[in-house]
Nucleic acid binder design. Structure first.
Lengths: 197, 197
DNA sequence: GTCTATACGGCGATAGAC
DNA sequence: GTCTATCGCCGTATAGAC
């Protein structure tokens, strides 16, 4: 394993364990058994290291999600698949949503935001298909922007308050997973209900 | 104005402007024209200062929201009012949701979490009424926990990605407000649709 | 290009004088 | 209650060895 990969892998495990602020570059260097200066050689800063790791994670998953949105499937099927796939991804990476939000709020500059979300929320194809279906009279006249935000909110937000949901409802990791699997159907039904004529 | 109030007020304005990490206690002390040591005298730490400020904000708004949930109104009316009131509160304090999330993820210890969220997500009365209505056959058989998470997600999540929504849809502050006002009806309709028999 | 050693200024926090 | 002085840690930068 290259030094760069070793740093990334170690840093990811520490960021997941302790969060961004509570993980120091000295912690990372110590655990990865390298010198702190190497962190600055490979990545220019701690923030850059974080963004690099987490952009990698996004790049791993966005093709799947955008593939669904851009496919030629009927809109109902598309929504169903998107919900299922997105929740599966977040079940594997429960902290991903909060990481995205933290990057967003740490870097108020617009370029960073757009770079991340351009790929993540690539709604162009979907909105077009949505409005086509409305025009054809196949689905109810619903604002595609509101609809997409509904879909995103219902899928991602529960993961940002995972601990609260677990505590309030006396869940463990397994029962939370079960709950989120049930939730796939809940969300899909709800979304389809709002567009069904 | 007392020193303690002066610190809180100054800190809040800086936290809102630059965020928690980018605001140093030296910044706060300078702007409030007091010594840094005083920050530690009144609040034990920067984290404590933040939590104190923002707990105050929550305490200001939770009675309204819990008042609605705990009232004797019919469930449909309750949902309608809750959505309207919550969105109005967040339109006045757009960063509140992210602040709550950041506290949650910075303090993984459970006691802190519960104290804040105990009041915020006080779902007891609501869930009971919800299940009563299900038993009476007045509404569809829907899991109250899933329903409440749906409601929270649809209301709060858009505020955590406010900048992205604004950029993607070429909005300014005014058009975003307008969008969220429209959203009240979108959410209420959606929620009522899922429970309507 | 890869790495070590070291230094710098800023940070949150605190002991102790008044 | 308030302030000075100081501590140890942080992210970052760089000089120089290999």
């Amino acid at each position: 394993m290259s030094t760069e990969e070793k740093i990334k892998k170690t840093a990811l495990s520490l960021f997941l364990e302790k969060g961004f602020e509570r993980t120091s570059i000295r912690d990372i260097a110590l655990k990865a058994k390298i010198n702190i200066a190497l962190l600055n050689y490979y990545f220019r800063s701690k923030e850059n290291l974080f963004n690099s790791i987490f952009s990698g994670l996004l790049e791993k998953y966005t093709p799947t999600l955008n593939g669904i949105l851009g496919s030629s499937l009927p809109i109902e099927e598309k929504i169903h698949l998107y919900v299922e796939e997105y929740i599966d991804i977040l079940l594997e990476n429960p902290k991903l949503t909060y990481f995205v939000l933290s990057v967003l709020h740490r870097n108020p500059d617009k370029i960073t935001q757009m770079k991340i979300f351009q790929s993540l929320y690539n709604t162009g194809d979907f909105s077009k298909q949505f409005m086509d279906e409305v025009r054809k009279g196949n689905i109810k006249e619903v604002d595609p922007t509101q609809f997409f935000i509904n879909m995103l909110s219902l899928i991602t937000f529960p993961f940002t308050i995972k601990q609260v949901i677990m505590e309030k409802n006396h869940m463990n990791e397994d029962t939370f997973k079960q709950f989120m699997h049930q939730r796939k159907q809940v969300i899909t039904n709800m979304l389809l209900l709002t567009i069904k004529k």
